[in-house]
């Protein structure tokens, strides 16, 4: 990852070229239910393998390394919530199983989400992931 950031740095035009790093800020996404009264019920978190946790830490370390080496500087960082809306707990489970690696919707959370949706048919199920976006500028130009 450090090598990837270093390569990308070389490609940047002066004076305004930049790297934009967009990725999850937190390791574990949350399964939530929006209720008709406007409140939000936390259903559970996804199960995350060590592989995903290690990759998350490695990405943070890579950014820290290029900053310490004065190749790049972080000029701004922002977090936002990123939502995925399935129709059902089954759809959410299948989506994660198909699209994601090292992450699962466990049986307990899946069952709880289904039960809560049946108890309140007007509730809205979603997966919320906290995402960070940051700008990295070549140090000499920042």
């Amino acid at each position: 990852m450090v090598d990837a950031l270093s390569r990308a740095r070389r490609w940047l035009k002066a004076p305004s070229g930049r790297i934009i790093d967009l990725r999850p800020a937190h390791v574990v996404p949350d399964v939530e239910l929006g209720l008709p009264d406007g409140s939000i019920a936390h259903v559970g978190g996804l199960l995350v393998d060590d592989e995903r946790r290690q990759r998350h830490l490695a990405a943070d370390l890579a950014v820290l390394t290029v900053v310490r080496r004065r190749l790049l500087s972080v000029t701004g960082e922002q977090e936002f919530s990123f939502y995925r809306y399935p129709d059902s707990a089954d759809e959410l489970r299948d989506y994660i199983a198909t699209k994601w690696q090292h992450t699962h919707l466990d049986a307990v959370t899946h069952r709880r989400a289904g039960e809560m949706m049946r108890a309140d048919p007007d509730a809205r199920l979603w997966l919320r992931e906290q995402v960070a976006i940051r700008t990295l500028l070549p140090e000499a130009r920042s």
């Binding site: 490609w11 940047l12 035009k13 930049r18 790297i19 934009i20 967009l22 990405a59």
Partner: peptide
């Protein structure tokens, strides 16, 4: 992968790592 991508130096305005780091 990015490590096989060859581009001239100072040729792009932004490199976006899209959920990729």
């Amino acid at each position: 992968p990015i490590d096989r991508l060859a581009l001239p130096d100072e040729s792009v305005d932004a490199v976006l790592f899209s959920w990729a780091l």
